[in-house]
Design a protein around this nucleic acid. Structure first.
Lengths: 284, 284
DNA sequence: ACCTGAACACCGTTCAAGT
DNA sequence: ACCTGAACACCGTTCAAGT
C-alpha cells in the first residue's frame, strides 16, 4: 500500500493549491504554455488546440497576434471575471486590438470556447506530477491523473463548468478528460495492468463520472455567499430555515468544506472498486 | 434484499423513458405543472418558483401572462432548441407577446434561468414514484430519488447542464437536488434511519456528487455525432484514430451507451458504501 | 499579410406612452 | 393593470478598405 502514502502527499499539495487565488494559478498556467510545455510534437499534433481550431499563421515574435496568445488571454479573462466578461470585444481590447482582428485566428466565439477548454485541460501536460508514464501501477497513475485534474479545476473554477458541459466531439472523449491522448494513455495503463477490454472501458467511465461530479460540485461550492468572511452584518442574513429543522440543525456541517478529504476517500473507494474488476491472477 | 428488486423495476421504467423524444417529455412536464402538481401549499411556499422570483400578479384565466406560464414556455423552448434559442424576444413571441411584457413577471434573463432550473427540479414533486414519504427504508428512498432525478435529466437534456452548473444559492443546497425541501427530506430520512449527523451530511454529499457526475455525463452523451443512425455516408468520417491504437481497438465499447446499467451499478455501490456508515446496531 | 471602420442583425433592458 | 414603441448600450460577425 505504498501508493496510498503517495496519494496522501499529493492531496496535501492539492490543498495548498486550494488557497491560491485564481490569478496566480492562471499566470502559472500561462507561463507553462509559454514554455511550450504543451509538447508540440506529439502524435500528429492532434490534441493540441490546432485540433479544434484551424492552424492560424505561424508565430511572429511576441506582441504579434497568435492563436495561443488569444486562447491564453481568453482563459485569463474568464478566470478574472467569469464567462460573462469574455466578449470578442473585451478580448480584443485585452490584447490591444479590435475585436475583428481575432477572426483571423479563430472562427468565432464558439470555437474560441472550445479552444479555451482544450487549453485548460492540456495543462495536464505541463503538470510534472502527472505527465510521466505509468510507473507504480495503475492505481498510482489514476490517482495522479485525478489530482492533476483537480488542480486544474481549482485553478480555473470559472472555466471548469465549460469543461464539464461543452458537448464532447465524440462518445469516446468524455468530460472532464476530453483528450484523445489522455484517454489513450488511460486505456493503455489499464489493459497493460491486466484489465480486460470491458473492464478498462468501464473504468474509464467510472473515473470520468467520479471526477465530473466531484470537481463540479467542489468548484460550484466556491463563490457561494457564505464563503470565507464576506459582509458579516447583522444576523447571517441567510435564508429562513425555520421550516426545515433538520437543515437548520445540520447547517454548520453542511456549510463545511470537506471536499478535499471527500475527494480522497471517494477516489480511494473508486480505486478499490476498480481493483475488483481485475482477473484474479492480477491482484496486488 | 427486496429493495434491490424494486430498484431494478424502476430502472426499467427509466429505460423506457430513455427512448422518448424530448418533445413528449416536455409536454408531459407542462401538463403536470398545469395540473398544479407542484403542491402549492407546502412549508411557507418556499421551494416553489416564488422563492427565486418575485410574486407576480395572481392568476388571471388562461391566456393571460403568468409567471408559471412564462417559465413553462421557457423550459419548452430550451427543450426544443437548446439554451441558445431562448431569448427574451423569442420567449415573448412564443407567448404571443412582446419581450418587454415579460419584465412585469421576471426581473431579467438570469432570474428566468434560475426559475427554469427550479421548475424542472420541482418536477420531482409531480413524480408519483418519488413523492411519498420514506417507507421502505432509506435505501429504497434514495434509489427512488435518484431515479426520479435521472428521469428529469433525460426528459430535459438541454436544461440539465443549467441544473448542474448554476451557482447554488447556499452551500447546503447542492446541485442537482437544489431544493431546500428535498434536502430536508433527505436528511430526515437518513437521521431517522440511524445515521449520525456527520454520516447524514456525508451521504448527502456523496449522493449529490454521484448524481451530478452520472447524469451530466449521460446527458452530454446524448446529442453526440455518432448517435443513433444519422448521416451514414461514406466511411464513418469520424476523427482519425490511427495514432491511438487502444482507442481505435476499443472504439465499439467506448461508443456503447451503457449508462443505464452503469447508473444502477454505481447507485448500488453507493448505497452499499453508505450502509457502512451506519452504527452497527442499525445494520439491516 | 494583417488590422480596422463601418455596418448589419440581434441581444437584454428601460421607460414613457398607450389602452 | 397590463402591454407596447421607441430607444439605448452592447453583442457577434462580415467585408470592403486601409496600411
Amino acid at each position: 500500500m505504498g501508493a496510498t502514502r503517495d496519494r496522501a502527499d499529493r492531496a496535501d499539495r492539492a490543498d495548498r493549491d486550494d488557497r491560491d487565488g485564481a490569478a496566480p494559478a492562471a499566470s502559472r498556467a500561462a507561463q507553462r504554455a509559454d514554455e511550450g510545455a504543451v509538447d508540440p510534437d506529439s502524435p500528429e499534433g492532434r490534441g493540441g488546440a490546432a485540433a479544434v481550431l484551424p492552424a492560424g499563421p505561424p508565430g511572429t515574435g511576441r506582441p504579434g497576434l497568435d492563436q495561443r496568445r488569444i486562447l491564453g488571454a481568453a482563459v485569463e479573462l474568464i478566470d478574472q471575471g467569469g464567462l460573462r466578461e469574455l466578449t470578442m470585444r473585451s478580448l480584443g481590447a485585452h490584447l490591444g486590438v479590435e475585436a475583428m482582428a481575432l477572426y483571423r485566428y479563430v472562427p468565432g466565439r464558439e470555437s474560441l470556447l472550445d479552444g479555451v477548454v482544450e487549453v485548460v485541460v492540456d495543462e495536464l501536460y505541463g503538470d510534472p506530477d502527472v505527465y510521466l508514464e505509468p510507473r507504480d501501477g495503475w492505481q498510482d497513475y489514476l490517482a495522479r491523473l485525478a489530482h492533476g485534474l483537480r488542480r486544474i479545476a481549482l485553478a480555473h473554477p470559472e472555466v471548469f463548468p465549460l469543461v464539464a458541459t461543452r458537448p464532447p466531439a465524440a462518445p469516446w472523449v468524455r468530460p472532464p478528460l476530453r483528450s484523445l491522448r489522455w484517454v489513450e494513455s488511460f486505456l493503455q495503463a489499464m489493459t497493460r495492468s491486466g484489465f480486460d477490454d470491458e473492464a478498462a472501458v468501464g473504468a474509464y467511465r467510472a473515473f470520468s463520472s467520479f471526477l465530473l461530479g466531484h470537481l463540479l460540485l467542489e468548484v460550484s461550492q466556491r463563490g457561494v455567499p457564505t464563503g470565507p468572511l464576506e459582509d458579516q452584518q447583522g444576523p447571517p442574513a441567510s435564508t429562513d430555515l425555520s421550516a426545515y429543522p433538520e437543515l437548520r440543525r445540520l447547517r454548520p456541517q453542511l456549510s463545511e468544506d470537506a471536499s478535499a478529504v471527500e475527494f480522497e476517500e471517494s477516489l480511494e473507494n473508486l480505486l478499490e472498486r476498480l481493483e475488483r474488476l481485475l482477473p484474479p491472477e492480477h491482484g496486488r
